[in-house]
């Protein structure tokens, strides 16, 4: 290759280099649209363990008992003992959690966060009419289930400040897998 040829060759290399560099730079694709808080709120339904996302209102076991009979017994049994679907009520039993074979995972012996209960009932229950319960009804049902599982007393009231503070019986037994300890802490 003569000197001119080499020069052209290097110039081409340089151009390619520039092109690939610019292609890797932060590209503004101009796709999608920015949304405001009101639009986010329509879909942002999750309840965090801190209680963030919990609505106003409060619930009691007495009111929840009536709702439970109305909406839940067909699948979960009239006392939460389970039926065509999960058992919901069983007091924490260390022997159950130590035993071999799948332990029956109930709210009382397994669920680590009370906030998850409100979140899940509101988003997915009842199975044949998901998302149909009011916040009031979800608070009441949560209260009844927590009372049945021995987490709260019969006359305790749950609301956005008390629910996240409840200590679930099994919460201290949960730990993160090594793969996630590595992945989540960078």
């Amino acid at each position: 290759m003569n000197r001119l040829g080499a020069g052209i060759f290097l110039a081409v290399l340089g151009l390619v280099g520039c092109a690939s560099t610019s292609n890797n730079a932060r590209q503004d694709y101009g796709l999608g649209r920015v949304i405001d808080a009101a639009e986010i709120a329509q879909w942002d339904i999750d309840i965090k363990p801190s209680g963030e996302g919990l609505p106003d209102g409060e619930g009691t076991a007495a009111a929840g008992a009536i709702l439970y009979q109305q909406y839940c017994t067909a699948c979960h049994g009239d006392q939460g003992q389970g039926g065509t679907n999960d058992r919901l009520v069983a007091a924490f039993d260390r022997e159950v959690n130590y035993s071999t074979g799948s332990p029956t995972r109930t709210i009382g012996n397994y669920w680590p966060y009370a906030t998850t209960l409100f979140d899940y009932i509101r988003r997915a229950m009842p199975h044949n009419a998901p998302g149909s319960l009011t916040n009031q009804q979800v608070y009441d049902l949560s209260a009844w289930l927590l009372f049945q599982n021995g987490v709260i007393a019969e006359n305790d009231v749950i609301n956005r400040s008390t629910l996240p503070q409840l200590q679930m019986p099994a919460s201290g037994l949960f730990y993160w897998s090594d793969e996630v300890v590595d992945l989540a802490t960078d």
Binding site: R94, N97, Y98, Y110, W111, T116, F174, Y175, S177, V180
Partner: peptide
């Protein structure tokens, strides 16, 4: 939390 977790022999539950 309540479903896709491992109930271990020591009585603890492994998540994620």
């Amino acid at each position: 939390t309540s479903k896709y977790t491992d109930a271990m022999a020591d009585g603890r539950m492994r998540m994620f």
